[in-house]
Design a protein around this nucleic acid. Structure first.
Length: 853
DNA sequence: TTAGGGTTAG
């Protein structure tokens, strides 16, 4: 009476489907009948009969087998729990545990093991390797070593299968010493077989870097000193290590060994050799091996396709892809994903989408990798609509499916967050981030959102989130990507203090593996936060530099008006053997423009295509127009616009208008404005420039006309705001701001300063007060501009002699610039002001910009 | 046991 405890079947009766499998309730259920179960339904029907007829052992185990093969282990378990312990039945417990491990239900597999013990079953030498595998995968040294003790107590420590599994478990948990000790013990007891050697070699190899090299050495001892017969597994293992370490010479030796021993014929070995050469960048060798392989499978083809795609040889990757299609070679999800990723990584998001559609029409089922690649394609071209479509697909087909890998789910979610933030839907991205359980967010979830905020003008949000990262109960350590994103946000805000803290964190926590990226971001952060000296120190201490490092430093010098320094860096860069690219030249031209080095700028502009083969783009032209405009060479600027090979974009006309403002060239300025309006790019910035230009020319009626035009067409001037760095925090001021608790003091200091500099010859330039378009905004008096308030607050709170650091979101007002120059004569601080265009260092009555701003 | 994926800088 095995089933009397469970009089009810665990599921409803299947009457309609019983037609083919019907027998009368009097027919005894035999083993052969159970074996005939072809479907889950049939198995359930038999189960019902068993319940009715109270059966014995034999058919029950067949049913268990049927349930396991039909992927419903819970039914199998309910049967198994009711069997009495027997050596024969252990097989089914093992099958259930193995099933859980293969479905990556690792904790569940441990529970099964415990249940088995509790019910009085005795595990055998097949049980332990499965359970040990779970401990290893769970990285649970505690469970693994407890199990080790149990194994010793039950005498299984002399079984080679179990001991090999112990070696792997310890290795997987990172306990290298334990793994090696275990292996040594086996070695001394003469227990080692080829699998033991493979296991210990694999332990070293999987740890990577120097340990992997030791693994390769061990492999050498295994083959040469101990003459252990190597199998395909060993070779694949060691080839993987050679590939990831770039040890192609050793890989070549293994290749030779495989040829001599005939193991090359094994398709796994052949694939691993192809992969090894491909990863070591030896595509010709890889191709030769690939062509020589008698038996190729889809993995062989994919190894080549993905290798070509990865090194950017997309032509050959696509060529092979087409060949696969022509020769009717199975295209699996990896093939499709590789092609989709190839397009996505080259910014061809739409082509990636096209391949995705082809994949669907071939009834190939995409997996997490495919979707992640596809989403990165959508992100790269800002295709929000397609991104949303992919999101729908994800909801329909991926999430909530039983047995789905949670890690994969998270990766897809992260890719979705990234897609939404790159497509400027930062709020959706945020909502998705918030919807992930806090203990499930990984470093990428945090990084993509921080990066999203940093890149879309919400740098404060980025830094807030970065700070939150450290306050979580489930602390996730930021990686080099996260650090770079946070530094980017600091650079945007000129948040020097925060940036310095991050720098200190980087030094304390040794981010060696990604030095270059982080260092470049540090150089950028320091130069954009006004500490060009610190930027130089970081730059000088760098172990390696690339074009970005040099350009970041040059940008810094350019922004600070140190044009000669910038050009010196440019020369050093060339001497160091780095080839300038289009961005480098943009920075050179910018530096010349902001230091009034017109002729040098023109020389570089004219030489860039001749000497370096870089065709000037719209941005280079805009820079040169800006340079000529600042210098008052407006006719030349106009002539250049007329002959430039592309249609002038709005930035070109803004650059020209800006020059017209400085030199009060009303006629040309009006022309530039009309062009801007034609292009539909008339915005608050260009109207303000126009109004300032009229003011400079003394044409007050036109100023009033523009103000009225702006008012009636609903164009509002972007509100100016300035923030000043304090010892502990940053304080922000808007025009006429009186919200600060020390507001009264701030205004008093300001009034006093103005009074004193007036005595030195400062005359307020009222033309700048006319920026204001809203008559209601009475507060926009010259003396209440945000930068002036920030300065007064800085004087109030900064220790004597220390510089005052102010940042403004738009260009500094001309009157403020004059006032600051005078104020710097009477205060004991250097004023470092960053506006949207450049840095101004005010000291002892002069500004570093020398009028070029 | 072999092939594929996500987040960063000028």
């Amino acid at each position: 009476m095995l089933f009397h405890l469970n009089p009810k079947p665990p599921f409803p009766l299947y009457v309609s489907t019983a037609v083919k499998f019907l027998w009368s309730s009097t027919t005894p259920v035999s083993s052969s009948l159970v074996k005939q179960c072809k479907s889950l339904t049939q198995a359930k029907l038999v189960h019902q009969q068993i319940l009715v007829q109270s059966l014995t052992h034999v058919p029950a185990t067949f049913l268990i087998a049927a349930y396991i093969s039909h992927n419903v282990p819970s039914y199998a378990l309910s049967l198994l729990r009711r069997l009495s312990p027997s050596p024969y039945g252990v097989y089914w417990w093992n099958a259930l545990i193995r099933c859980a491990v293969s479905r990556r239900q690792l904790v569940n597999s441990l529970h099964l093991f415990l249940q088995m013990l509790r019910l009085g079953w005795h595990p055998d030498h097949y049980t332990f390797p499965f359970v040990l595998k779970s401990c290893g995968e769970l990285l649970s040294f505690r469970c693994g070593s407890a199990l080790h003790a149990f194994i010793c107590a039950s005498g299984f420590d002399s079984n080679v299968f179990v001991c090999n599994a112990l070696v792997s478990m310890y290795g997987r948990c990172g306990a290298l010493d334990y793994a090696h000790h275990m292996f040594d013990e086996m070695f001394q007891r003469g227990m080692c077989d080829a699998v033991s050697w493979n296991s210990i070699v694999a332990v070293y190899i999987q740890r990577g870097h120097a340990d992997a090299e030791r693994g390769i050495q061990l492999f050498g001892r295994m083959t040469e000193d101990f003459r252990i017969r190597v199998n395909a597994f060993s070779l694949v293992n060691v080839l993987f290590a050679c590939a990831s370490l770039g040890m192609w010479l050793r890989g070549k030796q293994v290749h030779g060994y495989a040829m001599r021993t005939g193991l090359f014929e094994d398709v796994f070995v052949g694939n691993a050799i192809v992969d090894m050469y491909a990863k070591c960048g030896m595509m010709e060798e890889a191709k030769k091996v690939f062509e020589r392989m008698k038996v190729k499978d889809v993995v062989s083809w994919n190894a080549m396709v993905t290798a070509y795609s990865k090194i950017g040889n997309f032509e050959d990757a696509l060529g092979l892809f087409e060949k696969m299609r022509k020769e009717n070679i199975e295209l699996n999800v990896v093939t499709w994903s590789a092609v989709i990723a190839g397009y996505a990584q080259r910014g061809h998001g739409y082509k990636a989408l096209d391949v995705f559609r082809q994949m669907q029409s071939c009834s190939s089922k995409p997996n997490a990798v495919t979707l992640v690649s596809l989403l990165s394609g959508c992100a790269s071209v800002g295709a929000l609509l397609y991104g949303k479509e992919t999101h729908c697909y994800v909801i329909r087909c991926v999430f909530g499916v039983d047995g789905n890998d949670l890690e994969d789910d998270l990766m897809v979610t992260n890719a979705l967050i990234d897609m939404y933030s790159k497509c400027k839907s930062i709020n959706v991205a945020r909502a998705m981030f918030d919807a992930i359980a806090p203990n499930e967010r990984n470093v990428v979830s945090w990084t993509v959102l921080i990066g999203g905020y940093a890149q879309h003008g919400e740098a404060n949000g980025a830094l807030e989130l970065f700070s939150q990262m450290f306050q979580q109960v489930n602390y996730v350590r930021p990686n080099a990507f996260t650090i770079s994103c946070a530094l980017m946000a600091c650079a945007r805000l000129a948040a020097l203090r925060f940036g310095r803290q991050i720098h200190a964190y980087v030094l304390r926590n040794r981010y060696e593996s990604a030095f270059l990226f982080v260092d470049n971001c540090l150089v950028d952060m320091y130069s954009k936060s006004g500490d060009i000296g610190a930027a130089r120190v970081v730059f000088d201490s760098m172990q390696q530099r690339n074009a970005v490092s040099w350009t970041s430093l040059m940008t810094g010098y350019g922004m600070h008006g140190c044009g000669h320094e910038a050009l010196k860096v440019f020369d050093e860069m060339k001497k160091a053997g780095l080839v300038p690219d289009d961005v480098t030249f943009l920075v050179v031209l910018y530096a010349c423009s902001h230091s009034g080095m017109v002729d040098q700028g023109l020389e570089y502009f004219n030489g860039m295509s001749k000497e370096f083969g870089i065709t000037p783009g719209p941005d280079h032209y805009a820079c040169i127009i800006d340079l000529l405009g600042r210098a008052g060479r407006l006719d030349e600027a106009m002539k250049l616009i007329e002959v430039m090979p592309m249609k002038p974009s709005p930035v070109i006309w803004v650059a020209l208008l800006s020059g017209c403002r400085i030199h009060a060239n009303v006629e040309l300025g009006e022309y530039a404005t009309s062009k801007l309006l034609e292009l539909g790019s008339g915005n608050d910035g260009s109207y303000t420039l126009l109004s300032n230009m009229y003011a400079k020319a003394g044409r007050w009626k036109d100023v009033a006309r523009i103000r009225s035009l702006m008012k009636h067409s609903g164009i509002k001037k972007k509100p100016g705001c300035s923030w000043v760095q304090g010892k502990k925090s940053t304080t922000t001021f808007f025009v006429g701001d009186r919200t600060h608790p020390e507001s009264q003091k701030i205004y008093e200091i300001l009034a006093d300063l103005i009074q004193r500099v007036k005595a030195l010859g400062y005359v307020p330039d009222t033309s700048f007060a006319l920026h204001d378009v809203d008559d209601e905004e009475k507060g926009d008096l010259l003396s209440e501009h945000s930068e002036k308030l920030a300065l007064a607050f800085g004087i109030l709170t900064t220790s004597p002699g220390a510089p005052i650091r102010i940042t403004k979101n738009i260009r500094v007002c001309g009157d403020c610039h004059t006032a600051f120059t005078y104020i710097s004569m009477i205060i004991d601080h250097e004023i470092i002001l960053r506006d949207s265009s450049r840095f101004h260092h005010f000291k002892e009555g002069s500004c570093s910009c020398r009028g070029y701003w």
